[in-house]
Nucleic acid binder design. Structure first.
Lengths: 208, 208, 208, 208
DNA sequence: CATGAATGAGTTTTCATTCAT
DNA sequence: AATGAATGAAAACTCATTCAT
């Protein structure tokens, strides 16, 4: 396996001007990833698209990895922000509604920026950045599991850990595939149908 | 420099020696992918590990893409061979047993060469090779769907297309995550438990 | 990019604060040279270690060359100061004692800052700065030669120019090698022994 | 201090053609070092001057360091070859003649390629290549010491180790300075005079 | 057919220096 | 004066691919 790439920002941008530079670099990286793929996202190209010199790029990002890491970070931040706010009142709800909400949130999350999501999911070499992804899905996992605790009475399953793994994996996969591989044909009604199916699948499983 | 990837094998190795050469090249590629990752799998390195000159490599594979494609092809061939043979009598079975078998087969498929599977799934840039993967899962999809047709009486779902999508996606995701991310702790009993859970999840969904 | 190295300090630091800044820049350069080598002594790094902005660095030193030149200058100033004071009364002394003193002074000079001395001697590209080094050893040469003039009666050599060259070169090489390559094992007694040997070598040569 | 650069040749040239390539690369490096200095000896420039592609350069030399190391190696090989053959019969000779020969050989060695010698001595960062230089001067040291053993009767010194250090250092420094810093004015007669002086210096020291 | 020497465009990265604030 | 953001030429090095032998 490859050594450990350095992904920590080299220097934190404090001034107005530099924050703009950092922003445009991340934005440019995301755009290139989506439009041309990981391989084309060379540091020179990123700098060019960002309208910034290659030197400036390296002032803030010690490597190409760091750049991609920042894109991932930003994307996940956005997702988790949505997830957290959407799930705020979920613990008060009965199982059926709660699960449907979980599924709907998952779909919404994938719709934030489906193309970017796809590139990040499929094309990025998983090297030295696993922790970040793990952290991310662990939060999802925790949120779900925490809900299950509160709804224990309605459940027909004992092992909440196992059940959470099954449910989170299932919801993630269904929405991921649906949005990314069938997103163009799955609009409106059919999407609702899919959410229903997913919710029914998971609810059925939990209720036994 | 790489331009448009050509993935058709340049010539079919008819003679004895040629076939051995091709085999060792594919094998070497697979080994390097697993042990050192996609980035380290340069054509020169592959040739070296295969004990073959770089010139000979290009005699049989017109590009690096072709080499990787051959590895994917071989891996999928192995998987589908297993899947087909395992599912031979499934159409005669009742739903419960059949689904359990589907899940078990999925697990077995992932266990054929989990590390290679993981690399192929995670690290290989999806460029111009999507058809192959699509073909692959389409066959799985078809097999499953075909079974559902035969078991229509037992089902509580109408839309077999949608149901197949849901089930195949779910089974694939569960087994994939289980084997690749938790493979080391999921041995014996716990693996059986997971197969049971998966089967129950899907069966419940189909039976309503 | 660097073009023609300018080595004159850009402005003389008259004010209090300026002088401190200049001092810390030279100090930082010396520290980096010793601890990390010439290659790591980038201007940005020097400024950082000195706790000064890169802009300020260029306020006082027009180029990297000028910075290194200042370090050399300071080091040589220190050495020559010691040499001059140590050799003040040497002209009054008989040959044996005088030569021993010359050798001892050479050792002392190398011991002032052996590590810096070594870096300056070995790693600094000799570009456009030869004059300075020449000036330096020329002063040593002159001091030695001046002494020989005063001690002509005791000498068995005619050509004082040649003799000075031989002696200064020898003393310098012996002490340099002794301190830099064997400095750790050459402590106390053994160092005295070496001084004796050197003195005997040179004295014997001069006396014939 | 810098990490350890890799200086081992990457691949040994076996065929006729490749040996020529390697040769021209080393030659080009040496030429550039002499004519333009270490800083200008970039790998691209070396390849260009050698009339070879940058790719070929890296087939045989893993780094710039390796290239310089090869130049050093070649130069030292030439020197040691001369030294060894010149000193073949020295052990049979009396002290006076032997020492004169040692000095003469040192001068001759420095005259093999004085400009290259100078660059290698002065400009090359001493990193990770010390062993090679050590090995080299250790051989000189050993040869000298071995001679002293055979001539013990004539010596007024006890510590042959120390004496060898003093003599080898002295001879090296004298000839080095003479040839490199005064080589242009030191021709013919004056050079002979210097050899005489050096020999007298050392002989006097050894005889007491 | 096999070999492996050669190619060179392209990539990552550094660092001395400038200049707007 | 001081700051530090920005610059970009240039350096080291890789690797898919070609081609002479």
């Amino acid at each position: 396996m490859a050594k450990k790439p350095v992904t920590k920002p080299r220097k934190i941008a404090v001034q107005e001007r530099s924050r703009a530079t950092v922003g445009s670099l991340i934005e440019a990286t995301a755009r290139i990833l989506v439009k041309e793929g990981f391989d084309k996202a060379s540091t020179n190209r990123v700098a060019e698209v960002a309208g910034v010199s290659i030197g400036s790029l390296y002032q803030y990002f010690p490597s190409k990895e760091a750049l991609v890491a920042a894109v991932i970070e930003r994307h996940q931040q956005q997702i988790m922000q949505m997830v957290r706010s959407e799930l705020a009142q979920v613990r008060a709800q009965p199982l059926d509604q709660a699960i449907r909400r979980f599924v709907a949130v998952a779909v919404a999350a994938h719709r934030l920026d489906p193309q970017l999501h796809r590139v990040l999911a499929e094309q990025i070499p998983r090297v030295g950045r696993l922790e970040k992804l793990e952290t991310f899905s662990r939060e999802n996992f925790s949120l779900f599991r925490a809900y299950l605790e509160t709804a224990r009475d309605e459940l027909a399953v004992d092992d909440l850990e196992l059940a959470s793994f099954v449910c989170v994996t299932t919801i993630e996969a269904l929405t991921h595939n649906a949005v990314l591989h069938h997103g163009k044909v799955l609009t409106g009604d059919r999407m609702d149908a899919l959410i229903d199916e997913g919710a029914r699948l998971v609810t059925g499983y939990l209720k036994g």
